[in-house]
């Protein structure tokens, strides 16, 4: 699996907390070596199931080792408490749905004496097919790091490991929110946008926005695109029939796009870069106004 090199693992607070929990177990050097393994892409795949993680890790041998990590799932009673806490404020759902673990969620849980993070080494049982007698071995440790990265991507995976998947959680919260409860069947995860064209999966125009443009703007292919070409409209099109007005004016709010996009994830912690982009936007605006308002 590709890992984000040099970013470290766990750029979000909950992934970091996952790692801190592990590091507090004082497993020593094997964690460091596992980190290097993870960074070098030795973890080939990882599957997260309720209470169980399955992974393949490439080691010194030809066949990859199989790693299995079990983690205690929460009891039904514990889940009830967690779900009650999650349903108590709309902001928890709002944040989870956009891929953020609500910051004060642990606080909500601590009163319940429940944690979604491991607290003791006993919470985790790991097994690897390698011959290393150390536990955890570097293969297992590598999987722990990759898990941090996965949690980063989708905080629901952490819940899944503890026994409930996204759909179940959202449904349970919704039922708490709504008076009339009805079962809801799981929804298929939304398909990722397609756009794999070149070696890096980029469209010709870069990260494409074309799907946002109406079908009508992009007419059918073929000669009919040009309509009936006569000797006159070959040169003029519909320029005379259509009065297209284009005004040049400054934005209502400066750098709207940058403000909306926020910090790029791959720039995490590097504020000078986003500031650089802000300066670029300003410079372009100034120049565009000078040119656009030339006379």
């Amino acid at each position: 699996m590709a890992s984000r090199e040099k970013k470290g693992f766990g750029s979000s607070w909950w992934a970091r907390q996952w790692l801190e929990a592990l590091e507090s177990f004082e497993w020593g050097r094997c964690l460091t070596r596992g980190k290097a393994y993870a960074r070098n892409g030795n973890v080939l795949d990882v599957e997260i199931l309720p209470g169980l993680v399955k992974a393949h890790v490439r080691g010194s041998k030809k066949t990859p080792y199989k790693v299995e990590i079990s983690m205690k799932t929460l009891s039904e009673h514990e889940w009830e408490q967690v779900l009650d806490a999650l349903a108590s404020k709309a902001i928890f759902s709002a944040k989870l749905l956009v891929g953020d673990m609500p910051g004060d969620i642990e606080k909500a849980f601590s009163s319940l004496e429940v944690s979604i993070f491991p607290r003791h080494t006993m919470d985790l049982t790991a097994h690897c097919t390698c011959s290393d007698w150390l536990s955890p071995c570097k293969h297992i440790a590598a999987v722990y790091y990759i898990l941090a990265q996965e949690f980063d991507r989708d905080p629901f995976l952490l819940f899944k490991l503890r026994g409930m998947n996204r759909e179940q959680i959202m449904e349970a919260i919704r039922n708490r929110r709504t008076s009339a409860a009805q079962p809801v069947t799981a929804k298929k995860e939304g398909d990722l946008p397609q756009g794999v064209k070149s070696e890096y999966g980029l469209q010709n125009d870069g990260v494409s926005f074309e799907e946002k443009i109406d079908e009508k703007v992009r007419p059918v292919t073929g000669n009919s695109q040009h309509g009936e070409v006569s000797l006159i409209n070959y040169w003029t099109g519909k320029m005379r029939n259509m009065d297209i007005k284009i005004t040049v004016e400054p934005p209502l709010v400066e750098q709207s796009i940058l403000k909306r996009l926020g910090e790029p994830p791959f720039f995490a912690g590097k504020m000078d870069m986003i500031r650089q982009l802000e300066q670029d936007y300003k410079k372009v605006l100034l120049k565009a106004i000078t040119v656009g308002y030339k006379d």
């Binding site: 064209k197 070149s198 070696e199 890096y200 980029l202 469209q203 010709n204 125009d205 870069g206 990260v207 040169w235 003029t236 099109g237 320029m239 005379r240 297209i244 284009i246 005004t247 040049v248 004016e249 400054p250 934005p251 400066e254 750098q255 709207s256 796009i257 996009l261 982009l277 670029d280 936007y281 372009v284 605006l285 120049k287 565009a288 106004i289 040119v291 656009g292």
Partner: peptide, 29 residues
């Protein structure tokens, strides 16, 4: 020619997009 007028109009459109900061940095093949 109207081809001239057309490309000038498109140029104004580009200026409009730039002036309103409707652009993003990206990557392309």
């Amino acid at each position: 020619g109207d081809d001239w007028n057309f490309w000038v109009l498109c140029g104004r459109f580009v200026l409009r997009m730039l002036c309103r900061q409707k652009f993003i940095p990206s990557l392309a093949p």
